[in-house]
């Protein structure tokens, strides 16, 4: 009994060790996933260091991971395990992005489209920042600059500087003439304004003109006088004898 019990315990210990070994390996290698997923195939020209297990982000949320990658003629056939709830329309955009500017970590970015039809096969593109390619481009630019004659550049710069200097001098001269004439016009305008001011003061002041200009009584009297004169003239025209019968004009 004792022996059987110990044998059983040892058996459990060894089997537990083997099971834990398998569980630990599967867990650490990222094969354990509680997600209910389906496969989406994407063809890339170049995966630029993407690895199995890299995250798949749908609208910024992690919704799957890279399941497998294999070269398929000229493309890399990449299979993504995407959450069952995510449906991808045919106009969905799939790209490889870099998690950071300095790190080599990549992820798959999915921007779902709006089409009513869905599919599981896409063509993806790489939008990851590739420092190596940028470096090589900078190198080629540097090579182009190295091939240029710096002395030729300095001559061109000197000519350009001289021409600009001449043009600026001419521009300043041209601007000086209108300025003189403009000063004359301004002087004259000042004089005119002074005259207008004195006239205004004359009209508004306490002198005769001022009082005449500002008196309402005078205005009404003048108006009445004018009306009376007009009536008189009309009457003279209609009845000239009335005014001329008493008038004896003798020439001789």
């Amino acid at each position: 009994m004792y022996r059987t019990w110990r044998e059983t315990l040892v058996g459990i210990f060894i089997i537990a060790g083997i099971v834990l070994f398998i569980v630990l390996y599967i867990w650490l290698s990222g094969r354990i996933s509680l997600r209910n997923t389906y496969d989406v195939t994407v063809y890339f020209r170049d995966v630029e260091g993407l690895r199995v297990g890299d995250p798949v982000m749908v609208l910024g949320l992690e919704k799957g991971q890279v399941k497998s990658m294999a070269i398929d003629s000229v493309d890399v056939k990449t299979v993504l395990a995407v959450d069952q709830a995510i449906r991808l329309p045919v106009d969905t955009k799939i790209s490889i992005r870099a998690l950071s500017y300095v790190g080599a970590d990549k992820y798959i970015r999915i921007t779902p489209g709006v089409d009513s039809q869905t599919t599981t096969e896409f063509r993806g593109m790489s939008e990851a920042l590739n420092l190596e390619s940028i470096g090589s481009k900078i190198d080629s630019i540097v090579q182009v600059f190295k091939g240029l004659d710096v002395n030729a550049f300095s001559d061109v710069a000197a000519d350009l500087s001289r021409n600009i200097s001449k043009d600026v001098t001419r521009l300043v001269d041209m601007m000086k003439k209108p300025t003189t004439r403009l000063t004359e016009v301004i002087d004259r305008t000042d004089q005119t304004i002074a005259h207008v001011d004195s006239l205004t003061m004359l009209l508004q002041g306490s002198g005769t003109f001022g009082r005449l200009a500002k008196s309402d009584e005078l205005y009404s009297e003048l108006q009445e006088t004018n009306d009376a004169l007009q009536g008189l003239l009309v009457d003279i025209k209609e009845n000239p004898g009335k005014y001329i019968k008493h008038l004896n004009i003798k020439v001789f």
Partner: peptide
């Protein structure tokens, strides 16, 4: 030889 690797796996876990 059998026990130490099993104990190591358990310890890691």
């Amino acid at each position: 030889f059998i026990s130490v690797p099993i104990l190591t796996i358990i310890a890691e876990l």
